[in-house]
Write a protein that binds this DNA or RNA. Structure first.
Lengths: 202, 202
DNA sequence: GAATAACGTTGACTAAAGTCAAGAAATTAA
DNA sequence: TTAATTTCTTGACTTTAGTCAACGTTATTC
């Protein structure tokens, strides 16, 4: 039991660190804040949240890697986000408005997550002003990077985007299947295979 | 003088409406809030903010239409956002961190704007909690739509994306040049011309 | 550890979109 | 109103990426 507690301490330190990157937390408030979150484990390939449902929680990843993707009418998947350790992920719009989400969230590896319900999420805003601030900053950063990503997709070839992603998130390539990378980049698996062949034979 | 004041009243009502869509404003606070904003006019094609500079303000559009775009090393433009009436626009990341922006903001038509400085922006968060809330909600919505846009760009052809945009923002097509639409959609002007030919000849 | 499934590669072909160049049409400015 | 400029269109060609099918290679799973 004491051992388990020790592990949890280590884990949540990661969470604390990540928030402190964005904002200063008043002494003692983090512990209270943590009680709003729940620890969950998921197995490889297990679904965490499914499209067509109102999402039950939002997520911070302590360990593992998961993907957010959408499936169109033809059954084709399109990955919009990978969340590795230290990343927040979820469909906040749907959670807060209690509307159906169009996204699936699936564990790519065995995952350890901290999750927070819609109610506790709203509670966190009321109780902790620093959380609101951190959240705002996070969103600003994220929206800016999404916009940047759009530009890249408009102006660069698949090959260049592949190289950029490889440079930006090298570890990702060692933990997710290649066709997931292709889906995220918005190209077919075959095209990615050919891009790699071209790059690594020259 | 009294006539001018009347005009301003009408204009800011638009601003009030737009915020009230997101959040309820306590009696009397809007007037105080308004003092943090400045009214500005820009001529057609005039630059409002330039890349390579720290942006001096963030924007709400009362009248007219402007574009946010990036220019790459080759001198090619890529439009990331159109702001028509009732829209917020700016590079908040750069404003708040006082870093150089990569985006240009240019008036497409004669524009009437409300602008807010970095200092007043931070002040608004401190003074008006409803503004923080409205802002958070706005960002959530925007980020979600950017993600959705990424998916569309990954999975749909230029033709379908053109039709979707036409459906979503029909008025935009009557006020901005066609090659701006092409740039925003991430296709060449020639391709857009051909898409239109194909659509309207069948 | 054999069977099964998932993943990655390759070839041949097709489709979508970009590029370059020329010229028509429309808009703006003098 | 005319001249200048910008915008749009079209043709010919190239590049990039998608599709379908086959097959080899890894991983899983029982």
């Amino acid at each position: 039991m004491s051992e388990k507690k020790e592990v949890r301490k280590y884990d949540t330190a990661l969470f604390l660190e990540e928030i402190q990157k964005r904002v200063a937390i008043p002494e003692g408030e983090f512990e209270k804040f943590l009680t709003l979150w729940e620890f969950r484990k998921f197995n490889r390939n297990e679904f965490i949240l499914q499209s067509g449902e109102v999402p039950k929680f939002s997520i911070f990843v302590l360990k593992g890697c998961l993907r957010q993707y959408i499936m169109n009418e033809k059954g084709e998947e399109s990955i919009v986000y990978f969340a590795e350790e230290r990343h927040f992920i979820g469909d906040l719009q749907s959670i807060r408005n209690k509307t159906i989400s169009i996204y699936n969230f699936q564990a790519i590896e065995e995952c350890e997550l901290l999750t927070i319900s819609a109610e506790n999420w709203e509670q966190a805003f009321i109780e902790f002003s620093w959380w609101t601030k951190a959240h705002l900053t996070g969103y600003q950063k994220w929206a800016a990077s999404l916009q940047q990503q759009m530009v890249e997709h408009h102006t660069l070839t698949g090959e260049v985007r592949y190289l950029n992603l490889l440079k930006a998130k090298p570890k990702l390539f060692q933990r997710v299947p290649q066709h997931y990378i292709a889906s995220y980049l918005g190209i077919s698996p075959e095209t990615l295979s050919r891009i790699r062949k071209k790059i690594f034979n020259s």
